[in-house]
Design a protein around this nucleic acid. Structure first.
Lengths: 344, 344
DNA sequence: CGTCACTATGTTATCGATAACATCGAGGAG
DNA sequence: CTCCTCGATGTTATCGATAACATAGTGACG
């Protein structure tokens, strides 16, 4: 910056002003500075700027994983909305461990971000207190927690489970099972059940299941039909094996709600192999509306989540809060949509 | 840090040493400092540290998008390998525009990262010169560029196209078409063809197509069969429509190589609708090995790319270079695998 | 018992920017 | 003509850490 100042015949503060508040500098001076910046290829050091101005223009996001198409579009939406507002995204992956999350919260805070986005609803006590103590806006996304740290954007997994179960009931099904709860296996050869904490895909799946059970009770459909020991392997494989196990226990099952589209894919495949007509004899519903679920793919009836919008909205809320604007709805339910296709 | 130092009865530099080089501090002193850190909930400011030590422990990654399952696992692998080495990831999405990429390179460099990862092979001249001038390691991932800025990890799209075409030939096909080149539509309602630059999904698809054409020539299979005007819409939709158009021009086509699994999904679906037996009358091959392509899903014959490994390796190379170790293979070809399943 | 080598800790300057206050000149009001 | 105000620019201190050098103990050895 000194070099630029010298080249333009001004002081450093003027260079700083040209870059941050151009309207406060006379046009002629500004032009000289801009020329010097360009000529020297000067790129300001935002780290130094942050130190001085106490504003980092950085937002941290902690997600469990990007693989498996769950959070990718949320992060994408977040990155885009931040970029448009001149902020940058610091990304950390927790690999489904809340111990890792705790460590990542600390490292994230060490960058003094202007805000932080979390995809997990449950945090260690230490993590919660660090977040609270940081004095920055926090947004939890996807699941709307009962006891949010600060703000939240997402939908209710439990309501989604309930709604889909009611949908199955509404289409005449009476013996409805649930497939694909339990652990979410890390993809790509990650450590199995890393970190010792409860896996967090688990928690979400459990919430969907709770909604399923609630609906069953409300509708008087009898006891839940859930495989007690979920299978190992990828979600798809588990969907297949869990359906097989479920049918063994309750052969007359006429519908299953799968905790994810991947599990539903496995279930559909298993049903096909067994010559079970879908949806005639067995309706299959998924969750997530992944790409392959669409009309041209499986034609899977599923729950669609506005993942990208969640990310974009999280960014917006964060920046609004930062700039002092009041945030009308700090707990924002973006809902979900039941997409009815061929399988249920 | 001053507060901590006071509480522990030492000077700030001792606190700094306890945090960065604990072995240089006597155990008793160290214990007092650690206690003070814990008690005060002190989280060091890495930004300030970076300014002083000229080492940010930050790596920037610029990807076109995270949606659509292409780069997500690569970023995931990168984030993980960086985390294990105590570094953090700064993420930017370029939305397939090299103009946006140029701007992002500048903002990324303004954080003084210790390295930078790019998923696009073509950069503007300005971007290239900024990268070169930054004096930090640069890794280009996925496509191996002809003229790399610094290092690269990935595979050859052209070779992949060539290999799959040869595979189709080896299984007896002689009238082979190509589906799904051209633009890659932005998902989630992004601006169509934003930024004015050539979309970069386009470039990669073109390379696969070039490989396809090369194989055709080598094998004496006649002129390429490619739809001149690719359809609009999502990749899946385009796969369906392009196949339809292709069959209209060349009804006797007995195999198609699709530029992505999404396109292949659409193609399979279109074939089914028309009652064309796959693979008996028409073989269909994809690219990417997305989750739904597997045994339990489509059973799609496709090209599998080690996306996560590419990211992890990029991180490793970056950090090796940073710490002065020589990097044996600055241009690392991780290859691809042809996965033979049911459709071809 | 003095000197040396070494360990443990402290002091000072610095990284690259910005906030806060200071200065300077030009033009307008009285 | 003087004083005042305001716009344009400069000076100095500061953000929170670390590098480099400085200094105080501490034990070994001749």
């Amino acid at each position: 910056m000194q070099d630029v100042a010298r080249a333009a015949g001004v002081s450093t503060i003027t260079v700083s002003r040209v870059l941050r508040t151009p309207e406060k500098v006379k046009a002629a001076t500004r032009a000289r500075v801009v020329a010097a910046v360009r000529e020297l290829g000067y790129v300001p050091d935002q780290g130094a700027g942050a130190l001085s101005s106490r504003e980092s223009r950085l937002v941290a996001a902690l997600v469990s994983t990007l693989s498996g198409s769950i959070f990718a579009s949320t992060v994408d939406g977040l990155a885009q909305s931040l970029r448009e507002a001149g902020h940058q995204l610091l990304l950390g992956t927790t690999e489904y461990s809340s111990a890792t999350e705790e460590a990542l919260v600390a490292t994230a805070l060490s960058r003094r971000p202007d805000g932080i986005v979390l995809t997990s609803g449950d945090h260690t006590t230490a993590a919660r207190s660090m977040l609270a103590g940081a004095g920055i806006p926090v947004v939890e996304v996807w699941e709307l927690p009962e006891d949010p740290v600060d703000m939240a954007v997402g939908f209710s997994n439990q309501e989604a489970g309930r709604a889909m179960t009611r949908h199955l009931h509404a289409t005449g099904r009476r013996r409805i099972g649930f497939v694909g709860g339990g652990r979410q296996a890390g993809r790509g050869g990650g450590r199995p059940a890393a970190g010792g904490g409860a896996a967090d895909g688990d928690r979400r799946g459990r919430l969907r299941r709770r909604g399923y059970e609630a609906a069953l009770a409300e509708l008087g459909l009898g006891a839940p039909r859930v495989v007690p020991e979920p299978a190992d392997g990828s979600m798809v494989e588990r969907g297949a094996r869990d359906l097989a196990a479920l049918l063994e226990c309750w052969p007359d099952t006429d519908a299953v709600f799968c905790s994810s589209d991947s599990a539903a894919l496995g279930a559909v495949s298993e049903a096909r192999r067994r010559g079970i007509a879908v949806p005639d004899r067995l309706a299959i519903a998924g969750f997530g509306d992944f790409e392959f679920a669409g009309e041209l793919g499986l034609g899977l009836t599923t729950v669609s989540i506005p993942g990208r919008a969640i990310g974009a909205e999280a960014g917006r809320m964060l920046l609004a809060r930062k700039s002092g604007e009041p945030v009308e709805t700090p707990i924002l339910d973006l809902g979900f949509t039941i997409v009815r296709r061929a399988t249920a």
